[in-house]
């Protein structure tokens, strides 16, 4: 049992996360508080949801770089629609945002499954096409808090429960954490308990064999890319609610690299077939900690980027050098 644990990437990642937390706490005890933890969850749940969706695609051997565009489109279209309709309904906002995500995902899946084009290229193309079209039609003006439909503001501030600090200010666990938990459980069930999930893993291992098994690969591709779109739609609404502002140029530049980095650190293979939800969440946690908590160590925030880079480079190098050494023993350095 211990041996199995020690073979797993997640175990080491867990150590790194704990070590990081210990270091920060030693320097600045303000880190190790429930409040800081809750804040971190509030800020990072959205990215973690994207990462889980991205993992599903990666497991099948694909890649999807369109999710930031999907998220922001879902959010902005939902905000604009709600303003135009003069309603403030979270359900409607989510329905619109997720609907945008589903359509987007279906278009991606269409190009991928019917034309057999590289998934990277397809998602690069569709995100440019749709995102540009949306901005052309709807404009690119940000929607400020004063105009933002109330449901977003409420959603961003709602807590599951409230606590009070020693100084008397109140804080709580955001509903975002519940949304994340829901997504994690659903995705875990899909990947671990359904045949679909096993087939997704199998696709990343040997696509040709899956094809021969008679399974409807096209349907699975539609499912995966739509699922990613759906999660991006949810994240879009959460992101707008978090910052209480809807800027159509926001998520596009900021989410792609951290999510990719987190999933990679979590031990998922870019070739598909390997990776776990636990690893992905740990990887995202490490990225979030690095991005948001270096300040507590007294390091100026302009160092953030540098440390994220160092961790990513070291993390992936160690994994791959390990794999290479293991491979060399079996004379498979000949396998490129």
């Amino acid at each position: 049992m211990v041996k199995r644990l020690l073979r797993r990437n997640e175990t080491y990642l867990c150590f790194v996360v704990i070590a990081f937390c210990a270091t920060v706490t030693a320097v600045n005890p303000a880190f190790f508080t429930l409040q800081n933890f809750f804040d971190l969850l509030h800020d990072s749940s959205g990215s973690a949801i994207l990462a889980v969706g991205f993992l599903v695609i990666l497991l099948s051997g694909g890649i999807d770089v369109s999710f930031p565009a999907v998220a922001i489109m879902g959010q902005y279209i939902a905000v604009k629609a709600l303003i135009a309709l003069h309603v403030s309904s979270l359900a409607l906002a989510l329905a619109i945002s997720c609907g945008v995500g589903l359509v987007f995902g279906a278009v991606n899946a269409f190009f991928i499954s019917f034309f057999n084009i590289s998934t990277l290229i397809v998602t690069l193309g569709t995100s440019g096409l749709f995102y540009g079209a949306m901005l052309q039609v709807l404009g690119s003006a940000g929607v400020y808090a004063s105009v933002l439909p109330n449901c977003f503001k409420v959603f961003g501030r709602t807590n599951v429960f409230q606590l009070k600090t020693l100084t008397g200010s109140s804080y709580g666990l955001s509903v975002f954490a519940l949304v994340l938990a829901g997504v994690v459980i659903l995705s875990w069930i899909i990947l671990r308990r359904t045949l679909l999930g096993r087939v997704i893993y199998a696709m990343g291992g040997n696509m040709e064999a899956v094809r021969r098994s008679g399974v409807n690969i096209r349907a699975i591709q539609f499912f995966m890319y739509c699922y990613m779109g759906l999660l991006a739609g949810v994240m879009g609404v959460m992101s707008g609610s978090l910052i209480q502002y809807s800027d159509p140029t926001y998520i596009v530049d900021t989410e792609l690299l951290p999510v990719l980095a987190g999933v990679m650190l979590g031990g998922a293979s870019i070739m598909g077939g390997a990776g776990t939800i636990t690893g992905t969440l740990l990887g995202m946690a490490l990225i979030a900690l690095l991005e948001k908590n270096l300040v507590l160590l007294g390091i100026p925030s302009y160092w953030d980027q540098f440390f994220v880079g160092v961790v990513l480079v070291v993390g992936v190098s160690v994994t791959h050098i390990q794999r290479r050494i293991r491979g060399r023993r079996q004379l498979s350095l000949l396998r490129e």
Binding site: R193, T194, L195, L196, R198, V199, Y201, A202, G204, G205, N206, E208, A209, V210, R212, S213, G214, V215, G273, A274
Partner: peptide
Amino acid sequence: DLSLYPNLSVSENISLNQMIEKGVRLT
């Protein structure tokens, strides 16, 4: 080439195609 799934376990390799054929959803 045997058409196996290298990254899955022996039991998954043996049972997966059969489950696909039977249309099993949960497992």
